[in-house]
Design a protein around this nucleic acid. Structure first.
Length: 101
DNA sequence: GCTCTGGCAAATG
DNA sequence: ACATTTGCCAGAG
């Protein structure tokens, strides 16, 4: 459904600079706690890569995860936003942003 | 309608 | 901490 995707994009763009969220949390916020894969799928098909900060969505274990334009690019962007990325990972506890709930 | 593939997660070894 | 296995959702063909 396109609803799901739209929602994903919407929430991701709501993530403030310097913060990140996980695929899982995002999925849960959308009402589909186990649709984390679908979330990644939706982001990969992101219609506006420039307007949507897909790089602010990371894995639950703290790893950067993948990215349309390469994980290196993603890590770089995150660092530029003030997020420390060490060894391809980051401090999730510190930068995790939760929507409502 | 079924199979395959993903920017994944959690459990297991 | 790392690798493998299993589960799960949505889109594409």
């Amino acid at each position: 459904m396109l609803e799901f995707q739209s929602l994903v994009l919407k929430f991701v763009s709501a993530v403030p600079r310097g913060k990140v969220t996980t695929y899982k949390e995002l999925a849960r916020t959308l009402g589909r706690p186990r649709a984390y894969r679908a979330v990644g799928n939706a982001l990969s098909k992101n219609p506006r890569p420039l307007e949507i900060p897909c790089h602010r969505v990371v894995r639950s274990d703290g790893k950067i995860g993948g990215y349309k334009f390469g994980s290196e690019r993603k890590a770089k962007l995150l660092i530029e936003e003030g997020i420390e990325v060490k060894g391809g990972k980051l401090e999730l506890k510190k930068y995790m942003f939760r929507f409502k709930k």
